[in-house]
Design a protein around this nucleic acid. Structure first.
Length: 196
DNA sequence: TAAACGATGCCCT
DNA sequence: GGGCATCGTTTAC
């Protein structure tokens, strides 16, 4: 999925904390690992809404996981944010996580939401403000210049970070699809890139 | 109303 | 590197 690769290197900001995306996974309603696969339910409703919206849900009864709903609208597609490289508010992240080592702060989809203070209450909120990425056709707009609770910022111009596509992790169905995208060489991944 | 499942993280080895 | 805690959502009866 193009959007999942595009998000690598972008910056997520929430409150006083920010981090660079180094790992993503794409999900689509056509494959059984996606929540949208089962169809429209109260929980998956957001997945079938307009793109550029946050889909935050609870996993294993404990963790909040952050997804970005993708275009086109109604397709039930999303990108799971799996890992960040901490950029700002690192001390606040340490406090929230109760950990010292920087590489442990955001190296997992449940970890990064805790580090950034992103909770289920941010489900169904817009992700983009006035950044170039937000001007993708069909992306959520018209926010009147008000910054959304969570904001995505396009990566600096120039060469995109070196990335690799590999198999997704943590799921039991459709594991063979190479829809996990990692920044090569990052020390903040949830798991290392397999040798290949 | 009940039961099974899961896009995880932590702690221990 | 491997096992287990934990609870909302979904689905079946």
């Amino acid at each position: 999925m193009a959007v999942a690769r595009d998000l690598l290197g972008c910056v997520i900001r929430h409150g006083d904390t920010a981090g660079r995306i180094v790992e993503t996974e794409a999900y689509h309603h056509s494959e059984p690992a996606c929540h949208a696969y089962v169809g429209l339910t109260p929980r998956t409703r957001v997945l079938f809404g307009p793109p550029g919206i946050a889909y935050v849900y609870r996993s294993y009864g404990i963790h909040a996981l952050l997804n970005a709903v993708c275009e086109p609208e109604g397709q039930g597609a999303a990108v799971l944010i799996r890992a960040l490289e901490p950029l700002e508010g690192v001390d606040l992240m340490r406090e929230r996580r109760g950990l010292e080592r920087e590489r442990d702060l955001c190296s997992g989809p449940g970890k990064l939401t805790q580090a950034l203070g992103i909770g289920l209450e941010l489900n169904d909120t817009p992700l983009y403000a006035a950044d170039p990425v937000a001007r993708r056709p069909g992306a959520a707009g018209g926010l009147g210049g008000v910054s959304p609770p969570i904001s995505f910022h396009a990566r600096p111009p120039g060469e995109p970070p070196p990335s690799a596509a590999c198999e997704r992790i943590g799921i039991t169905r459709a594991v063979e699809l190479p829809w996990r995208f990692c920044e090569i060489g990052s020390r903040h991944l949830s798991r290392p890139v397999p040798r290949g």
